[in-house]
Design a protein around this nucleic acid. Structure first.
Lengths: 354, 354
DNA sequence: CCTGGTCTTGCCATCGATGGCACGATCCGG
DNA sequence: CCGGATCGTGCCATCGATGGCAAGACCAGG
């Protein structure tokens, strides 16, 4: 009987003990197994027994121990989400959507960031595996994920592929979105269109750059290397690129100015836009047409309001979560690459005519 | 011997079986207990035995099962984080900081959002308790948390108190920050200063409103009710409030215009600012001084650049995480209220003279 | 050579829940 | 009134790791 102990006595840790299924069973005068059946809605329980047990559960405020269940099941119900940075607005949106979708299915979400450090990434993914998470959503940082094994845990990649790993991927159609944005500018009379974006070493950025080139080519416009600034990893760098492009009043020396300035700019990342927009404004060159890849809060308060290609974080998150859930229900699904369209939001800056 | 089974055979689920400590022990020719000692750096193991076990661990790619450990320990190592919305930039920043701090201590973070729904909040907190999380960080949604029990699980509140619950609280000093912001405007010659913010039913908002009133009183300025719009829960509402204040060209009918318009505005939430700023710009009234409570990406690209009171999400997150860790290490700590200063970032709009 | 101590190791129970199987009771048709 | 099916219930083992205790090996001192 010493077994029955709890009766409100604090444990060693000082925590209040939660009631166990065994306590419930004893209170209801049934065996542990029967209480377990009630808990799991097993039909093979007599109605009055069921009721007695349920009353005991309420009485004792019983809450099943999720970890004990997981141990038995061999896998946690939680899923792990690995991103570069949680504070990034795009990922924050993705996380939000994933969490909503997952919690509708009773699955908690473990969120962790890699801090753009490949070693740390491997570390945190390892920790997730130790927890036996049910599945993983990963936005890859490192350029080698061959050590991961999709047979060990289902994985869905987000926003970019993971070299060396064959897994589902949910991304936006970067090539097409960039292509459309440039076509949109061309349709408004522009022929000298600049590109400001991140390094093509990132597949996502590479796709956007290709979209830019292809759109120009498709309209018979030759690409002018002077108009392409594809190593702008910071908004600072993007601002400097703009100065170089428009022959800014404060030349940053390092970058030679473009011989003939552009009449329109495609800013290929939100981070770049946060540099491009101030640069254009402070140079008084708001006459230059601009399409920004990625929305930002003040985009429609500016004059002109900034036309953007919306990076639909919520939809990406929802799709990735749905895919992972599907794979959890049916492990044998073939690997799939899901490309979501990115809608353009016309606000003015992208519709300026030459 | 059937026990030893795994030898790479897939389980029922189709997953690859991970090696267990028992497998390691057998491979090293020792008992399970000894292997466990090696795993936990117990000094009472002979050096050569230790090495044999460690080699076996590497050989079999052994990874301890975090859940089995947690079950034994009675509590998960993970901590739970409950916020209103993950996509909110402020909370995204807080989450980012918390995750960094926690993962430095090897603690995973379960993130979940309440969607501003008190029932859902109770639900998700309940689920966290079922997982026996080590601790909880909560930004309360509901106005009654008396059902929560800090003796059951350590709790640190973030950004606002939880009525009915006595727990540590980490917040910024809203009263003081608002007071300072208004004093700043007064110092620049303003006496008719408007307030645009959220409902005082939210303690945080109430403190800001008090700071506003107190600063005016402190400088012998009477509060004009017509200048106070404290029911603006959306940027839409904030924009309409501005129209009313300045006798906008497009009056939203419902709100009577102020008799004498303000020369300065304190926008008390980021959300409000996202309405106030566009409204001022489209009305061409950028001559009105403005201080925004809460920074936003484009604040310094606007003209004039917007002076803000920075809501230091990273610091709040770091402080909350540190406090929870401290409480985990030492459960008996007295309940504490930690107020962080909010720094003002002068950019121009708040320094406009009357 | 024996005794008491340290060092190393192993057995068993335990955390909280669930799966497999078996047992007793009830019910039905023959 | 009996045999087999069905229903409700309980016992035991199990998931993977750790805590308590004790046993065996080995050493030094008397």
């Amino acid at each position: 009987m010493a077994q029955t102990a709890p009766e409100g006595a604090p444990q060693a840790s000082g925590r209040l003990a939660a009631s166990r299924l065994l306590d419930v069973a004893q209170a209801a005068g049934v065996s542990l197994r029967t209480a377990s059946r009630v808990l799991n809605d097993d039909p093979r329980v007599a109605p009055d027994t069921r009721q007695r047990v349920q009353e005991a559960m309420l009485e004792l405020r019983f809450e099943p121990d999720a970890m004990a269940r997981s141990l038995r099941a061999g896998t946690d119900t939680a899923i792990g989400f690995v991103v570069e940075s949680i504070a990034d607005p795009f990922f924050a949106e993705v996380i939000d959507a994933v969490e909503q979708e997952m919690s509708r299915h009773g699955r908690p979400v473990l969120v962790t960031s890699t801090r753009r450090d490949p070693e740390w990434e491997r570390d945190v993914i390892g920790r997730m595996m130790q927890r036996r998470v049910a599945g993983l959503l990963i936005c890859p940082t490192s350029d080698d994920h061959s050590w991961l094994d999709t047979r060990r845990v289902p994985i869905v990649l987000i926003d970019r592929p993971a070299p060396g790993l064959s897994a589902d991927l949910v991304e936006i159609d970067d090539h097409r979105a960039a292509f459309d944005a440039v076509a949109h500018l061309i349709a408004h009379g522009h022929r000298r269109i600049a590109y400001v974006g991140d390094t093509p070493a990132i597949p996502t950025s590479a796709a956007r750059l290709r979209g830019y080139r292809d759109a120009l080519a498709h309209h018979g416009i030759e690409v002018d290397g002077q108009l392409v600034h594809c190593e702008c990893a910071t908004s600072q760098a993007a601002a400097e690129a703009v100065s170089a492009l428009i022959g800014g009043s404060r030349p940053p020396a390092a970058i030679p100015p473009a011989a003939i300035p552009p009449t329109a700019i495609l800013s290929a990342t939100t981070r770049a836009s946060l540099g491009v927009v101030p640069a254009l404004h402070s140079a008084g060159r708001t006459d230059i047409a601009l399409v920004s890849f990625g929305d930002f809060p003040m985009a429609d308060a500016l004059r002109p309001a900034v036309t953007v290609v919306n990076h639909p974080g919520h939809e990406v998150g929802r799709a990735a979560a749905a895919r992972l859930l599907a794979r959890l229900g049916q492990p044998g699904l073939p690997v799939e690459r899901i490309q979501l369209p990115a809608r353009m939001i016309e606000r003015g800056s992208g519709e300026l005519r030459r």
